[in-house]
């Protein structure tokens, strides 16, 4: 199989998987079948999977073949993002609970 065929297939797989994950997430909300918290959890999980699919298929980041530090940079950014976002949410929800509660 030529490089071109393989690359076309990678984009097609990425597009197909993203479509399925998008439709699944919207369908979960349009026709709810669980509690609100469970649905939100599933939507977030589907979103994270779709991000991973697009990083893999559209941005060509993978665990084994990247010789440069693209993946390390993503993981470092993800760590910073997780710390700052979760820290902000914890502190401000806690503050709201104490002020308004």
């Amino acid at each position: 199989m030529s490089d071109r065929t393989r690359e076309l297939r990678t984009y097609a797989i990425g597009y197909g998987l993203s479509l399925v994950l998008t439709v699944a997430a919207f369908a979960m909300v349009r026709w709810p079948s669980f509690g609100a918290r469970a649905i939100f959890g599933i939507v977030l999980a589907l979103g994270l999977i779709q991000m991973a699919v697009q990083f893999r298929c559209f941005l060509h980041i993978s665990f084994k073949r990247s010789s440069r530090h693209d993946l390390q940079l993503i993981l470092f950014s993800a760590l910073i993002i997780a710390l700052m976002v979760s820290g902000t949410l914890v502190i401000l929800f806690n503050l709201r609970g104490r002020m308004m509660g």
């Binding site: 998008t22 997430a25 919207f26 979960m28 909300v29 349009r30 709810p32 609100a36 649905i39 939100f40 939507v43 977030l44 589907l46 979103g47």
Partner: peptide
């Protein structure tokens, strides 16, 4: 779309 639009339509 997950955090803003879908979360806004849950429940």
């Amino acid at each position: 779309f997950s955090v803003v639009y879908l979360q806004g339509n849950i429940g």
